[in-house]
């Protein structure tokens, strides 16, 4: 299981780096999708198959499709890539990268101190997650459903047609 974890984590990290550095928006999105799929494999290896499946269905399969859809509609051509090239100057990325590198270095002693095994202890299947969601976390579930309802009403309001448009 350790090998699966490290290989898919490495894929996720490399894919995310590529997603940041690609100039073409669709290529960047494709790398981001690969990164999400790699994260799903990591979750699967850690003993959370249900969450892994949801990661693929919801993040990779629905949310990212909408991103791709919007980029397709905008149909950014070579001028957009040129703009990206000008935005991504070394002075813009060296600072944040150095700070992130410090955080990464801090993680190394933490990893060295732990047992080194990353395999999940118990498998979390769908029924366990359901019991947890509708047991101790029921308030959070209700609150997030309210938030989604508000989003739905808002989207309906923005998307509705006025009377003169219909006429």
């Amino acid at each position: 299981m350790n090998t699966v974890f490290y290989v898919s984590s490495a894929v996720a990290v490399v894919a995310t780096l590529m997603a940041i550095s690609r100039l073409n928006a669709v290529h960047a999105l494709l790398y981001l999708i690969v990164s999400l799929l790699a994260a799903a494999v990591v979750l699967f290896g850690l003993g959370a198959p249900f969450v892994a499946a949801l990661e693929v269905i919801i993040y990779a399969g629905a949310i990212m499709v909408l991103f791709v859809f919007v980029v397709m509609l905008l149909n950014l051509g070579p001028p957009a890539a040129e703009l990206e090239r000008r935005l991504l100057t070394p002075s813009a990325w060296i600072g944040p990268s150095l700070l992130a590198l410090i955080l990464l270095l801090e993680l190394i002693p933490v990893f060295a101190a732990s047992s080194g095994s990353v395999g999940g202890s118990a498998v979390m299947d769908a029924s366990k997650i359901g019991v947890a969601l509708f047991g101790p976390y029921v308030l959070a579930v209700e609150l997030s459903s309210l938030l989604l309802l508000a989003g739905l009403v808002g989207a309906y309001h923005l998307g509705r047609r006025t009377l003169e448009e219909q006429g």
Partner: peptide
């Protein structure tokens, strides 16, 4: 015999959207 077999199918079928989207765009 995955214990999330049905979800696996749904995940794969949602990924197939990319093929069509990317074919059209590219």
């Amino acid at each position: 015999d995955l214990n999330i077999g049905l979800l696996f199918f749904l995940g794969m079928s949602s990924l197939s959207v990319y093929s069509v989207a990317l074919a059209g765009w590219s």
